[in-house]
Design a protein around this nucleic acid. Sequence first.
DNA 1: CGCTTTTGACCAGCGC
DNA 2: GCGCTGGTCAAAAGCG
Length: 239
Amino acid sequence: MFPPKVSAVLNQGFVEDRMSFCTQISPPPHLSFPPHGIQQTLGGLNMGGGVASYLKEGLPSIPSQYGVASSDGGGLGQFGASSGQRSSNSLWSYDEEEGDLGNKISSAGEDDHKYLKNNSCSSNKNNINNLSVGAIRMKKLKARKKVREPRFCFKTLSEVDVLDDGYKWRKYGQKIVKNTQHPRSYYRCTESNCQVKKRVERLAEDPRMVITTYEGRHLHSPSRDEDELRASDHISFLW
DNA sequence: CGCTTTTGACCAGCGC
DNA sequence: GCGCTGGTCAAAAGCG
């Protein structure tokens, strides 16, 4: 059921003093997504330094009228594709301007990752001896910092932190973010070869609101059963 | 036993 | 150049 199809009304606006820019979505009244959510806000939410930096990158590509950028698969378009219903109302993605360069760097980073994984637990240990662990790690870190996958975030009124979007996630980190009493959690898609990540945090001004930021695109279908997905479709907030 | 979560450490980027 | 902050890693612990 997630990602939903875009059929919402977009309202550009500034929301709260810490949000430098925000694109709000008013879901159709007969639909609800996420399951526990009532309100959503799409676009770049300035949640302190982290998301703010993405905003700075993404804003130039946001059309002035709606704050929504066309995207060739980035942003929500990716999710529409993954659910078999690619939306024409793709939301803006942060990183269109990086283009090929970003992709190349990204590929390099992924190769490094595979390289590390393959060598750390296989018989192919000769190669890893050629590079020190520290050097490999440095290379990996450099790569990961340059990568800017398409991202979008939304705000949800929810009591649970992790919204069920149909994909399986593994938590790989948690961080206390400055000026917030709630930690930010980092998740990675458990599907092999899928590099999608998401961050989950609560709004400092309103702890009932959950900010979810997705990064990257799924290369697979949601892990939930098709039947279950179909069953949940009618209660989903479709995009 | 395998998978997931927790958590401290590490590093790069950024602002001053 | 230095300090701060966000993002990630990886070992240990927890859980089913």
